[in-house]
Amino acid sequence: MNILVLEDDEPIRRRLVRILGAEPDVTIIEAATLAEARQALCPVMPDVLIVDLQLPDGHAITLIADVCRRAPASDILVISVLADEASVVSAIEAGASGYLLKDALPADIVETVRNVRAGFSPLSPRIARFILDRLRATPATSNYSTRPPTRQGAPGVLTPRELDVLWGIAKGLKYAEISRELGISTQTVASHVKNIFHKLQVSSRSEAVFEACQQQLIKL
């Protein structure tokens, strides 16, 4: 498993490299800036990209979108100290699969990476709540409105089940607990979460198209 760690703070980068490097099947590439990362990305696309968002030479969000487009099979995790929802969600919209807290326990870091690789998208209660808040803030669609309902960056329409799952996560429940509550399997919960992610990304992409149309960059 190839992992690219893009983090400008050296102690944190070293800690991550040490923790992940201890795994037998992992190869690590380190990068401190966006330029280094792009260079490292050139020959081979890593399986997992662990990125800090704020870097000395810019914001990593374009890199995330780039990688996501060029290597859809790659998983991207955002590193964050405080997991502030807005930037994490924008990263998710750009194609990230989740985030890692910088001070997470080594075991948790490894588990998160492996989960992501296995197809589970980690979604924290606060992120879930942030998404729910944004859903509520989205104005109702009207026949007279030319603006798509996803204008505010809220995900496209979620199914009631997906909303149930989102609420469960927001209340701090684990997938297993949610599956018990809703009477569905853990796998189903995970797939709901994946769908939520997918819708977030799709909505952000359609938003980008809308924005581009607005600025007349694209002609439909």
Binding site: P125, A170, K171, G172
Partner: peptide, 14 residues
């Protein structure tokens, strides 16, 4: 309160 406790769980569990 449930939402507040949900966040707390995420912090306290590790």
């Amino acid at each position: 309160l449930g939402l507040m406790l949900g966040s707390f769980r995420e912090r306290i569990e590790p």
